[in-house]
Write a protein that binds this DNA or RNA. Sequence first.
DNA 1: TATTGTTATACTCTATAACTATA
DNA 2: TATAGTTATAGAGTATAACAATA
Lengths: 139, 139
Amino acid sequence: MSKRSLVYLFKHAGLRLGELIGPALEPYGIDGREFGVLSVLAGPEPLSQLEAAQRLGIDRTTMVAMVDTLERKRLVARRPDPADRRRNMVELTGHGREVLAGAGRAVDAAEEEFLGPLPGGDARALRAALDRLIPPHPA
Amino acid sequence: MSKRSLVYLFKHAGLRLGELIGPALEPYGIDGREFGVLSVLAGPEPLSQLEAAQRLGIDRTTMVAMVDTLERKRLVARRPDPADRRRNMVELTGHGREVLAGAGRAVDAAEEEFLGPLPGGDARALRAALDRLIPPHPA
DNA sequence: TATTGTTATACTCTATAACTATA
DNA sequence: TATAGTTATAGAGTATAACAATA
């Protein structure tokens, strides 16, 4: 009965991974949350602030501050949607794409380091299992 | 390249599991963090506040408030260590053991529900992989 | 009326610094 | 001097409520 709970394992997995990713992103001037936003915005179709927030599972008011920060860093730009002027489309700048490319490699390396103790097949299975357990962005 | 990051998956795994565990624990009058503390204190050897905190990976100042709460609920009791009166040994009360027993079953059921989408073997593999990635309590 | 972005505000969780009592 | 517990305080990170602009 001394089995550690799943919540504990998930929490500490996130913590340890975050400890690896934070320093790995430092050269790029962004943190893990900002990287998450950039990744989502780099997708094929352009996203509004609200859409980006929903894909990340964060509140739209939280997204405001994130986009503020990223815009100050010249990594993204807001552009009102001509078809619905209530919406702010958020797009990566050229600089933003460059930073994301490098940061993405750094994050991949950090993930690999984290998964290092596992045989390659187990690591892939872990990711596949989590992918199956966590439903994709809510519409 | 649309693969979701591991941090995202861990974070949302924890969130979703927490959403299942919270309501499951409600009948027992404790939340997920309190359950974690009770579980650790239920181990074979008696623990001081500091030792319990270290096993959970939380700060000793955080543990003070947790033990305060659990003591008010009559689930644990502080007892100064006769051998070193700086230390507070924390032990479960009889009532604490009863509550933990029921709560433990509720948490197990919540974990099973969370893992439901996975074939049994994959679920066990997931737990085993996480167990291997997260080192046990720091000394 | 409903929705998007925004602001102000508050809440939760956690840690840091400083104190106390013991060692 | 060093450690366990405590207290006060501050910092993340997040959400809720209310407002402006637009639909």
